[in-house]
Design a protein around this nucleic acid. Structure first.
Lengths: 233, 233
DNA sequence: CGAGGCCTTGAGCCGGCTCAAGTTCGGTGG
DNA sequence: CCACCGAACTTGAGCCGGCTCAAGGCCTCG
């Protein structure tokens, strides 16, 4: 597994919340340390293979998943096969919030990933002791909604150039790590389906951004950004 | 006030939850009748004038509003003035779920409307007695997310024709009342900004749907649907 | 070294956009 | 009641950004 991936070996082997990198920013932050110890022993961890679905469209998910490492795409199809990616899910984010309704999209791993899962009934149970959990879930839904609305702005009003730049900035924000170089966990087709563009248009737009000097290098799953320009189209 | 509006006189005069038409489908359904009586007396009702903003982009809303009658548009601008409507809010739906974050859109009344409001702190308080309230809020966020995702599909993958048809079907679902005739509470520009189309394209598409026989009549704020065709483009 | 994905590039087309007149309609004042 | 006005909507003509179809590179893996 190359080290540019979102999935670190460290986490793969750990299996305990104490070393979880995303714990503090996630749901678990509302639970006190002793309780966490307890949960840590009973909670299920899953390692998800590349391409595997965490939740599937039309099914009701009994579990809520927290992505520990890896990236997922949320995919939705129209009857005639047109595919839209409605979002990507990064570490610390949640899949399967709804405990009642059937999911409208499928969540597929883009790379080998780690998630931990809580059954909705268990969450409901411990929410008596930790009422913050429900507040967190409400807040989380709100954040998701903002993401969706940003996406709506992008699809409704932005040009191809703007969309690609927005997308690169999105990834940049997630990957504060390796500076100037961005790793794309997803294929061109995934990106195009997220941006509401055709594969070819995306490719051409990337090429044009390189020619403009916005990007330094575009090669496979890596993009080097020209550090001086702040992507200000 | 013409009777085709979403805002009925009955509700305007009432001011008490007992006659509220949307109570059973909304948040309040989780509260038992006696408590409702109490709330009914203390709760604030507001009548919102056409064009008035319920919440504004960039501001934190201290209140959660339930739309009792009327329709709102959720508006968001880009720096250069491009406008996107990210959604419409119909009776029974909620505005201002977030108690912490500042709103990213403005909610403006499309017609004289009635809302009732709860302060977030009050909601938090009574949620001890009625824990279902938080579950309802979580579920509500989830429904919103589905709406947003439908919108994303529409903007990302549908043609102009499909978008207009989807929109008409959306209104049809909200207005189960007067059959075959749809009333548009919003302007053409609002619809266009919702659908990610230009005003002119929307107008032309409506004209073409009429010529195709999908629509019988398109005149101002009314659309008559050809009852035989089930809009199956 | 060959096969098969995945990505890029090319050429031409078309759906929706732009710019620019009309047209309709509700409201307002004479 | 009519004349006028402005806002909202429709229609027309031409253009262009992104799509389609098709070929050509470039990795990866066997």
């Amino acid at each position: 597994m190359p080290q540019h991936t979102f999935c670190t070996d460290e986490l793969k082997n750990a299996g305990f919340c104490s070393v979880c990198k995303i714990r503090e920013t996630s749901l678990c932050a509302t639970v006190d340390p002793e309780e966490m110890q307890l949960i840590s022993k009973t909670m299920a961890h899953h390692s998800i293979k590349e391409g595997q679905a965490l939740v599937s469209a039309g099914e009701i998910s009994k579990y809520l998943y927290i992505v520990v490492s890896g990236v997922f795409r949320l995919v939705r199809f129209m009857d005639d096969g047109r595919r839209q990616i409605t979002g990507f899910v990064f570490p610390g984010e949640i899949v399967g919030v709804s405990r009642t309704k059937q999911s409208i999209h499928t969540a597929e791993a883009l790379e080998p990933s780690l998630v931990c899962s809580f059954s909705h009934s268990y969450l409901n149970e411990i929410s008596h002791r930790f009422p913050d959990i429900k507040d967190k879930l409400i807040a989380r839904g709100d954040t998701e909604l903002e993401k969706a609305e940003d996406h709506i702005m992008l699809l409704g009003k932005q040009t191809a150039h703007e969309r690609v730049i927005s997308f690169i900035e999105l990834l940049l924000a997630k990957q504060s790590g390796a500076d100037n170089r961005i790793y794309l966990p997803m294929s061109r087709q995934d990106i195009a389906d997220y941006l509401g563009l055709r594969l070819e248009t995306l490719s051409r737009t990337l090429a044009s951004l390189k020619k403009d000097g916005h990007l330094q290098k575009v090669s496979g799953r890596f993009i080097d950004i020209s550090s001086d320009t702040e992507m200000t189209k």
